[in-house]
């Protein structure tokens, strides 16, 4: 079982990294022939960096749109970031100082992450408009994330697993040596869910994470009168005449 999970993790990580890089390469390589920032937009590059930072860190546009989605969505994402960072302790030895420092916060973040996810799912189920646009995969991805959070919290607060052994497993995994995992159903469920998440990431709507950085309405500078903007394929139209 331990070996199987280790192998699955290798494959999932490979798919995640290669898939994501390939997707990012596609986004980067696809030209944006016209200036289409949603205005008012920053007129300088540093302004764009600031706009993007506000968008990614605070979900600025979503805040304008709807406070329910914003509060639940932000709570979930911010909590998840903490939780992921907290998990670095399984992959570092000795554990980095700041990773050790955030452990207590990361623990509660698991709870707020679950709360945020439930809030988002409730909206998907209760609000007629959102229910209308939801596909089965929208529900399943939420369920998967809820499963990951809930199984993790169970091991923290209800049925402890042997975290020393788990750490040994991942230390070994990183050095390509198989170490035993505790035979613990909740743990296996937790890890397999993470494997599933890694696999679907580059082929699902989870691509919103890299996508936002490439969104022309958000990452373009509002300077079309000052700078001529010409994509390669559009420039060809000029040389033909």
């Amino acid at each position: 079982m331990s070996a199987l999970i280790a192998i699955l993790f290798y494959l999932a990580t490979l798919l995640f990294v290669v898939g994501l890089l390939q997707r990012i390469r596609t986004y980067a390589a696809t030209p944006a022939p016209l200036k289409i920032p949603t205005t008012p937009a920053p007129t300088t590059t540093s302004g764009v960096v600031l706009r993007m930072t506000r968008e990614v860190v605070f979900f600025e546009s979503l805040f304008k749109a709807n406070l329910w989605i914003w509060s639940m969505g932000w709570l979930f994402h911010a909590s998840m970031a903490l939780v992921v960072l907290r998990h670095l302790r399984y992959f570092t030895d000795p554990v980095w100082g700041w990773v050790a420092a955030i452990q207590p916060f990361g623990m509660y973040a698991g709870l707020t992450m679950l709360a945020g996810l439930c809030g988002l799912w409730a909206r998907r189920l209760i609000v007629e408009r959102i229910r209308y646009i939801s596909t089965p995969s929208d529900h399943l991805i939420l369920l998967l994330l809820i499963g990951i959070a809930a199984s993790g919290l169970t091991m923290k607060f209800v049925a402890h697993t042997d975290v020393i052994a788990v750490k040994n497993f991942f230390q070994g995994w990183m050095a390509f040596s198989f170490q035993p995992l505790p035979s613990d159903t909740v743990l296996v469920l937790h890890l397999l869910s993470v494997v599933a998440l890694l696999v679907i990431f580059p082929i699902s709507k989870l691509l919103h994470a890299p996508g936002v950085f490439f969104s022309p309405t958000r990452n373009q500078t509002d300077n079309p009168r000052e700078q001529r903007h010409l994509s390669a394929w559009a420039a060809k139209l000029e040389s033909e005449k």
Binding site: T26, P31, A32, P33, G73, L207, F214, S215, T217
Partner: peptide
């Protein structure tokens, strides 16, 4: 068009069906 327009390429992938736009 997916190869010519980054907007279309990214926008086809990125939507998470959050519903922020539904009443706009």
């Amino acid at each position: 068009l997916l190869q010519k327009y980054r907007s279309l390429r990214v926008y086809m992938d990125a939507c998470v069906h959050c519903g922020a736009c539904t009443d706009k």
